[in-house]
Design a protein around this nucleic acid. Structure first.
Lengths: 344, 344
DNA sequence: TTGTAGGCGTTATCAT
DNA sequence: ATGATAACGCCTACAA
């Protein structure tokens, strides 16, 4: 007896289709073992009743939730973009995305995240940097048998649980660009040393410089914190030297903006006197004057790949996930903030 | 018979505490009708077993999900911030946040969102602008008996379902600021007319000007689209006139950046020749040179208030939700992009 | 290929 | 105050 005021259940469908719940269940779950005629009949009734299976009941019975977690630290545009890409894939696959913000620095990070996974009964989680770099967290998730995909910048652990950003090509391109413009005194502003992605950008840049036989002396280096202010501080240090760099590569856009501001205040013209390069491709990098040469991350591609990989891992296991790509490459985009090195 | 390899269930707790499931359930749900001694006993066992109730079973039995939806359109920093604030409140309350991106312009918006709510079995949703301005959507949600809170800029419908941003105080402050600096020829760049928040900013600004006996003639107005490019186009139109404005108020920061860029290219100095004001308080507004005077939204306060209101609505009904504040006020922050009107 | 019966972990009803 | 028992809506043996 179906109450018209409530959502139809699998029973209503079964009754109306003149079959059993079991068969309806088979249709829903795309079991091949069902007569084409009955399948059509069931589908029609589903359509007519506008029936959607109750995910709670489904989850309870099958010990699945059809819920994916997204774990990150600070709210940034990067997060928002990845989230967007994840949603696209999940929409089609019939999953929902549950978000969770946490603190990498926290002593309770692992407890916090594992509790979240248990509480929400997640089928799997996607972990964004810098949380993704915590090996202990990955271990704990493994231990509790929770599928996950890490977005990171360093290959570590099984590749089918990761999407790794390969900085090499883009940073090589960028370095070639600067060198071909005549720059030799190139300075670097790093992110915090605790960030793996930050260390990685540094290492790769050193390597790229070495390819051209260029060194990075101590006075051409400054440690930042991925913030605008830290970029300002670093730039002041670098630019106030007697022999100052003709180009500065900042490990993210925000710090690069800090550099531009300082240069501006010191009367150093960009790109005439100083070339500046950022990293991330934030929207503002196109707005700032002059527009910032930077390295653009392909967030959409990353999110897409990572989510599909995670779903494959959940639904078909590691072998299926292994079939997906592991590396993604950002791309260098030269704009107005880089130009020929000053001849003087 | 508790299998040590699996999560403990309510049965395990009941057995160990020497009581029935029903009593354990009462303890979990804070029913007052339970002996203090037994309550303590049960709580101890729960602690000992590290038991957490299964939210799927709970939801199935109580037809609740303990899931809240967050509905928005484009991924922005504003979204990420609101999301963060929502998570804080939900964490404590034992709810999770499921996100959903959609397209305001889509013909299937309503169908899309309602399907999402049904699919995920949400207990309630928070709706961000511009989606929050679609009355038909609110109606549909009402019809399907789904609780929601709208974040918007216009009071419409029941106040306990809304958190409204009151632009008046901040825009008044800003206008007073400009006028006291001697500006009379103030131009305005609006957002798209389809956005309620955009229209609202316009109306309030007009009113603020009128308080000073100032009009906004047609040649001092331009319609933008909340994008950088549209700011550029609008600025070119406004600044290429023979009698150009001495100040421009753009309805968001991005368009203000466009204005600054155009001014820069035309050799118009900011703030000496032209004052510029934005709206939103994006991080970049502090980085740009000169830093942008703008109106800052208090996202954290908004998110906090809205989420608490939604939870009250869900758990205790409209009366409880009615006890919460409805209005929030952004705040004008003068910075370097505004200065005395040029005397010439 | 299809149906029957039992269970997933809670909450709700109604006794006691 | 407490407890047996029946939902909740679906899935999974197992049987037919």
């Amino acid at each position: 007896m179906s109450d018209p005021g409530k959502q139809p259940t699998i029973n209503d469908v079964a009754d109306l289709a003149g079959t059993s719940k079991r068969t309806v269940s088979r249709v829903i779950n795309r079991s091949p073992k069902v007569n084409e005629a009955t399948r059509m009949r069931v589908l029609e009734v589903i359509e007519k009743l506008n029936y959607t299976p109750n995910r709670q009941a489904r989850g309870l019975a099958a010990s699945r939730s059809y819920l994916l977690g997204l774990i990150y630290d600070l709210p940034t545009l990067f997060i928002a973009d990845i989230q967007k890409g994840m949603l696209n894939v999940c929409e089609e696959a019939g999953y929902e995305v549950v978000v969770h913000a946490c603190h990498v620095e926290s002593d309770h990070l692992i407890e916090d995240v594992t509790r979240f996974v248990k509480r929400a009964h997640l089928d799997g989680v996607a972990i964004l940097p810098p949380v993704s770099d915590i090996e202990e967290l990955a271990d704990s998730l493994d231990k509790m048998d929770c599928r996950y995909v890490r977005f990171s910048s360093k290959l570590g652990g099984e590749p089918w649980k990761q999407v790794v950003t390969d900085y090499m090509p883009a940073i090589m391109d960028m370095t070639n660009h600067l060198v071909s413009l005549g720059h030799r005194d190139i300075a670097f502003i790093s992110g915090p040393e605790s960030h793996v992605s930050s260390r990685k950008r540094y290492e790769v840049f050193i390597q790229a410089l070495n390819n051209h036989g260029i060194e990075l002396p101590g006075n051409m280096m400054a440690t930042g914190a991925f913030t605008y202010e830290s970029g300002v501080t670093a730039a002041k240090k670098l630019l106030s030297q007697k022999s100052r760099p003709t180009a500065i590569f900042a490990a993210n856009d925000e710090m690069a903006f800090g550099v531009m501001n300082v240069a501006n205040q010191m009367g150093i013209r960009i790109p005439d006197d100083l070339s500046v390069v950022g990293f991330d491709g934030t929207p503002f990098s196109t707005f700032v004057i002059p527009s910032l040469s930077t390295i653009i991350r392909q967030t959409d591609e990353m999110a897409n790949l990572g989510t599909k990989k995670l779903l494959a891992l959940i639904e078909e296991g590691p072998d299926a996930a292994h079939g997906f790509e592991t590396m993604v490459s950002p791309r260098f985009v030269p704009r107005e903030s880089t130009g020929p090195a000053p001849s003087g």
